[in-house]
């Protein structure tokens, strides 16, 4: 058997990498997770049509009701329908959970690629800045920024974007450092292709896999952080519902009705768990280095 034949045979024997969708659908846990996330997404998109009651409408005289056919998870201390508030709260969580990681992904990746590709002083300045941000846990950074900018949705999005961007930047920098040394980059440079075109055409596509994996995991983090910041009063401000401030409101009134805490707690736990499970599977497919 010649060396060439052996090489060819090995190539044939290697299984074709399974497609992303096929891998995800093969695992029942992932399917359930996907369905749950889809449910939350639909609830968030169609919230105004789905809520049985106005999520802000109070009826002080029918406060703290247990679950019933009228109010599936009961009412809070102001007589507001808890289910309606959870559904409306999903909007905040979903919108923030998607927008902050995407913004962080774009800005962080560009910064990281610029650092890795250009090297030198660019790398030193961006690198130190990223190190600085990474030194803080995301929640602490979130508290610092939210306290400085004040509460509110846009401030919260900005906060989480800044908190998440360094992780993308670090991955992007490491990957582009090695790609920078590849012969095809030198070839492109000699052919007179501009730096930004090389970055966008050759570097970014080669690091997109790990970026998407982080992106998925950060969606869950964003939802969790929004809840945490709203819980301590720096996120979504009442009376607008968000899962975090529903828990905060409910905690004061645990003896009146525990349902706000239980239902919003379930929503946060189940959603972040589902997204993390999906994220893990995506990583298994897109990021072969970490596959067992």
């Amino acid at each position: 058997m010649s060396g060439a034949e052996a090489f060819a045979e090995e190539e044939v024997a290697a299984p074709a990498p399974p497609s992303l969708a096929a891998t995800l659908l093969r695992d029942p846990v992932t399917v359930v997770s996907c369905l749950f996330v889809l449910l939350v997404a639909l609830a968030a998109i169609f919230a105004p049509f789905l809520v049985p009651y106005d999520p802000l409408a109070q009826s002080v005289l029918s406060a703290n009701q247990p679950p019933s056919w009228q109010h599936w998870v009961g009412t809070d201390k102001f007589g507001r329908d808890i289910l309606s508030r959870i559904i409306e709260g999903a909007r905040t969580s979903a919108l923030l959970g998607v927008s902050a990681p995407i913004l962080a992904g774009i800005s962080g990746t560009l910064l990281g690629v610029a650092a890795g590709y250009f090297g030198g002083w660019t790398d030193r300045i961006i690198g130190r800045f990223i190190d600085l941000l990474l030194a803080f846990p995301a929640l602490l950074l979130g508290i610092l920024i939210a306290a400085a900018l004040g509460p509110g949705f846009f401030q919260l999005t900005a906060t989480l974007t800044i908190a998440f961007a360094p992780r993308f930047a670090r991955i992007a920098r490491a990957s582009s450092l090695s790609i920078r040394e590849e012969p095809f980059v030198d070839a492109a440079l000699l052919a007179g292709v501009s730096h930004w075109r090389i970055i966008l055409r050759h570097v970014v596509p080669n690091i997109i896999g790990p970026v998407i994996v982080i992106l998925t995991l950060e969606v869950a983090s964003a939802i969790r952080l929004e809840a945490a910041l709203s819980f301590i009063g720096l996120g979504t401000q009442p009376p607008e519902p968000s899962w975090g401030n529903i828990i905060r409101d409910g905690l004061d009134n645990m003896f009146g009705s525990a349902w706000p805490v239980i239902s919003a707690g379930f929503a946060i736990t189940a959603t972040t768990l589902a997204i993390n499970l999906i994220g893990d599977r995506i990583r298994d497919v897109l990021d072969p280095d970490t596959r067992e």
């Binding site: 703290n64 201390k77 007589g79 004061d252 009134n253 645990m254 003896f255 009146g256």
Partner: peptide, 30 residues
């Protein structure tokens, strides 16, 4: 400050008096 903690303190006997919480229905629930 936390009203649930205060309620637990009087219900559990750790304190003899508490300032009652003020939210609608809160006193009745304790």
């Amino acid at each position: 400050l936390d009203t649930s903690a205060r309620a637990l303190a009087i219900l559990g006997g750790q304190v003899d008096m508490i300032l009652a919480p003020a939210g609608p229905g809160a006193i009745n629930s304790i």
